[in-house]
Each structure stands twice: as C-alpha cells, then as structure tokens.
Amino acid sequence: MESRPTRRRFMEWFLGLGTGLLAVFYGGASALALWPPAPTSAKLQDMGPVSAFPTGKPTFAVYTAGGAQDGVFVVSQTSGPPTVFDFHCTHLQCAIQWSSGASEFFCPCHGSTFNIDGAVTGGPAPRPLHRHFAEVRNGHVWVGGLSS
C-alpha cells in the first residue's frame, strides 16, 4: 500500500488546516474583543463619611463602576461595616425604591418587595437583593463591586 501522502491528500490536508486556522484566528479575535469583562469586584470607592448614612434607614448613593453609574442603598449597622444593596431588583433588574412609609424596598415592574435586610417579602423575585462589598476606613464608607 502506498503510505506516502499523495499530492491530492496534501492539498486536502492543506485546505482543511488553512480554513481551520482562518476560522480560529477570526473567531478567537472576535471572542477576545467581545468577551464580557469580569465584574469589577476589586474596585473600591469612597462614598463619604459614615455619619452620612443613618442606621436603620437605607440611603441612596452612586457607585461608579468602570465608568458606568450604578445605584446602591447603604444601610449602616449598629456594629460592623454597613450593608450595601445593589438597586437592581433580582427579578429582572428594574430599579427598586425604598418606601419609608411601608418600610420596605419595592420594585415597580413586577411588584417584588424586600425588607431592610434585603430578603424577599413578596412578588416574583427569586433571591435576596445583591450586595456590594463594603468596609469602613478612617470613618468613611468604601464600596466595591458585587459580592453576592
């Protein structure tokens, strides 16, 4: 049997490899460019003095993550760092609002409600409010990316 590659076999092999290389090159370059960036969990931002955030009452604040503005609710705790909730509902990410009268967060889109600890108290939301990383440094509240 002839085991040496024939001219035709070489051409077929070359065509397959060449086409594959082109596909991998353009596919890979596109994927690299369009791949979603990792969540900006490490980026910490000074949100102001602890005194600006009263205990037991969510205060709306702006977290600028990677150039885009994101709303957060800061809730100071009697001890330890404040709890910082992302202001997107965990159902379909509409903006939640804090109702002082009803003492709960509510989402106007599909009617989900959450208590001051972020737990679901009503509506279709499948999980508690997402939290941002937060800590207190030198009397100031620092907030980072999503931690849950």
Partner: peptide, 20 residues
Amino acid sequence: SFLQGLARGGDTVSGATLGR
C-alpha cells in the same frame, strides 16, 4: 450571566451595550 454580559458588554447596560 455570560449571555447577559455578552449582550451588555459589562455588568449593566452602558455605552458598551449601545455600541454592540
């Protein structure tokens, strides 16, 4: 989450989403 990030080009709807 990957699909959502791919559509948005990030965590939230932003300029990257608009470009895409």
